[in-house]
């Protein structure tokens, strides 16, 4: 468990760092997919099988593919090999991120919540389904509306008007 966690954690951090640091944007997205798979593996390690598989399906199968499409549609895939990679205020950004991590780490270590895991909960798909249909049925419906609206919105935003010529 410890070993698996270490390997997966290193994989996630390496993938995530590469995803925001590499020059070639396609490599960025592929590394992002690696980080997504790593997070899904952690979900499986935590005993949430359904969420882990949903994570792979949505993030690797949809979000990463969507990003790849966006890359190719905006012709970002063949970037110039030179030119600045980062924005003008990159130092500020990285410092802020480091500061946030420092604060979070201090907070986590000081909070004393680091207890060991209770016996692994049995989480079946049936349980999730019943919960979704009972306590969370309204959020589920709202989510359906949200997804429909966002899909229509995305098409409308990305659509060009056919030019009458």
């Amino acid at each position: 468990m410890q070993l698996a966690f270490t390997i997966i954690a290193l994989l996630i951090l390496a993938g995530a760092t590469a995803a925001v640091a590499l020059r070639n944007l396609v490599h960025c997205v592929l590394c992002l997919a690696v980080a997504f798979v790593g997070v899904a593996a952690l979900f499986l390690l935590l005993g949430a099988e359904f969420v882990g598989l949903a994570q792979i399906m949505v993030y690797v199968g949809a979000v990463a593919i969507l990003m790849v499409f966006a890359l190719l549609l905006t012709r970002n895939a063949d970037l110039p090999a030179t030119g600045p990679l980062v924005s003008k205020s990159w130092l500020t950004g990285v410092s802020i991120a480091a500061l946030v991590f420092g604060c979070l780490a201090i907070g986590i270590l000081a909070s004393g919540v680091g207890q060991a895991a209770p016996p692994s909960p049995q989480l079946s798909v049936r349980q999730i389904g019943e919960e979704l249909m009972r306590n969370y049925v309204l959020p589920l419906e709202v989510l359906g509306v949200l997804l429909t609206v966002s899909m229509i919105g995305a098409v409308v935003i990305a659509m060009t008007d056919p030019k009458p010529d």
Binding site: M1, Q2, F5, A9, I12, L13, A16, T17, A19, V20, A21, L25, A35, V39, L42, L46, N76, P84, L85, V86, S87, S89, W90, T92, G93, V94, I96, A97, A98, V100, F101, L104, A105, I108, L109, V113, G114, Q115, A116, A117
Partner: peptide, 27 residues
């Protein structure tokens, strides 16, 4: 022994990496 702290620290690191990417990259 895995504790909650491990996961929280990893999650904080992942968040910070993402934040650095958002704040520092131009694309």
């Amino acid at each position: 022994m895995l504790t909650l702290n491990h996961f929280l620290l990893l999650s904080a690191a992942l968040f910070s990496v993402g934040l650095a990417g958002v704040l520092a990259r131009r694309n």
